[in-house]
Structures are given as structure tokens and as C-alpha cells.
Design a binder for these strands. Sequence first.
DNA 1: TACAATGTTTATTATAATAGTCGACAATAA
DNA 2: TTATTGTCGACTATTATAATAAACATTGTA
Lengths: 147, 147
Amino acid sequence: MKLSTKARYGMRAMLDLALHRDRVPISLKDIAERQQISLAYLEQIIAPLVAAGLIRSLRGPKGGIWLDRSADQVTLKEIFQTLEGSLAPVECVENPQFCSRADLCVTREVWDRIKEAMASVLESTTLQDLVDLQKKKNGSERLMYYI
Amino acid sequence: MKLSTKARYGMRAMLDLALHRDRVPISLKDIAERQQISLAYLEQIIAPLVAAGLIRSLRGPKGGIWLDRSADQVTLKEIFQTLEGSLAPVECVENPQFCSRADLCVTREVWDRIKEAMASVLESTTLQDLVDLQKKKNGSERLMYYI
DNA sequence: TACAATGTTTATTATAATAGTCGACAATAA
DNA sequence: TTATTGTCGACTATTATAATAAACATTGTA
């Protein structure tokens, strides 16, 4: 049960945005270079985040993207769900009619608990928490991330 | 991030075994029928559980499989890991050298927390817990599961 | 106004994983 | 001895993933 690269890269891209809030749009090209993701692929990852209203964008020279809210108002759950869909590890958790056994099956309860455990982590963490973690972690290596 | 059918079916098969502890081997055919899984596919799911020592087996007439331990001694984590591999949602959590950014990347911390949250649920639940849940849930429908 | 620099959208593709099926084989109780 | 079980390996169809690429739309600036 592995995460897709879209969710992995997308989370990195969102953190990159949060770390570079300079009141100017950040170009996809810059993010792609810093995060070592191909520009073309990054475009595909950013698109749903724009559609979900987490990111805003502007085309043209000096264009780019930026967070629509302050980092402490964006939970990782929103990002995750936008890129990966439901948190449920099996379809029947959200969609009982997916399996005819759903109403009798107690393994479903297990998968639901896992969903809730994941939700708890992702709801309680914001982009700002990641920013703080990053700053704390970098210490002297800060320059790598801020220049 | 969805579970494979192997883990889904395998968890059901293990619960089926725990519910039918009658001191006799249970045939794969019976489990396949009750759980609505093809026999051929179920064989593939059972094999790693036997290899992991969770299940024992006997061939021939009246042969079948059974739990090697009592249900309260089998955590769901063991079953999950046997069928699905690591709990880590991204490779770098277990294998830092998977990604060159691993030591600086704080999204990795998020994925690790998710892994731990899942582990917590799966470690703290045993097959016996599922058996109890099932009995409680079934009530009058018990017969469906016990005959 | 022209144009270069950006984001947007859609199509296409290669690779791998999933979810099985099938057939030959091995062991064993009756 | 034989029918009944589990074991093992090969095979296959379908789908998802992880991209690449090309054409297009917008916009700041010279």
C-alpha cells in the first residue's frame, strides 16, 4: 500500500510553496528544479491543487503559483485528499454497496480504524507545522532552502 | 492508496479460520466458498501465511489449514505485513537511501507518522478481537457464520 | 503592438502491478 | 490404491502509474 508519486511530489511542492512565500508568484519551473521533478509532470500535480482552491495561479511573465491561504490554515489532509482521493484503504469503508458483505464484515471495521488513524495525523498537521519542522531541521543548512 | 485484494481477502480468510476453530483442519475450498474467493486465488493468499508460520496445513483427504496460535496471539499487523509488506506508505521511510533528499526532507516525517498510526491500530488488534466483534455484530445472524 | 514567458489542457506511451486462471505435482487418509 | 486435499510455477488480461510531449491560452514588458 504505497503512496503515488503525485501525492509525494505534491506534498513537497506545497511545502516548497510555503517555504517561499515572498509575496510573488513562484514559477513551476523553480519548484520543479528545487524538488527535482520534471516540469511537465509537476504541471499535472499542480492542476488539481489549483482546481481544489488550495493554490492560485497567474500566467505570463513573472507568473506563477502561490498558496491561497496562510500555511497554518492548510491541513495536510486537504492536500492528501486532493491528490490521492479518499483516505479509506478499501472502497467499502466509504461505499458500503461496493461489497455485498459490507454490513456483516468486521474486517471493514479495521480498515475504518486505519482510515481514522491516518485522518488524525493528517488533520492535525498543517503546512506551517512542516515549515517549522524544516526550519528546525535545517539549522545551518537553511541557506540551501531559502536561497 | 488502496489495499490489495490479497490483504483484504487474506484478512477475511484468517478471520474465517479463527471463527471455525473446531480442532479439525479447514479446507481451502470451504473458506473459498464462504468468503466468495476463487480457490485458485485463495491458494496464493494462503501460501505466504503458511510460510510466515501463522497457518499450518495438512494435505490429503480431511486435510486443510488451521491457525498455529490461538487467535488472541495473532495481531493483525503480522497478517498485514505478511500479505502487504511494510506499513510505510513511502519507501524512504524504511529505506533512507531510496531518496537522496531523505535526510533533509520533512514530508518523510509525515509519512513516518502515518506508518506509526497504522502500526498502532494493527498491533493493538488481534484476531480474537475480530472474533469478538463478529459475534457481537451478528447476534441472531450467528447461524450464518457458524453453520 | 509584438513577443517571450509563463500556466493549461489533452493525448500518448512505456512499464509495472494487480488480480486473477490453469495445469502439473505431492502428500495422505480411508 | 485412490480420491482428496494442499503446493508450486507458469501464464495472462486488465488497469494504474509515471511519466513525456505538443498545442494552446494568458499576460507582463519592451
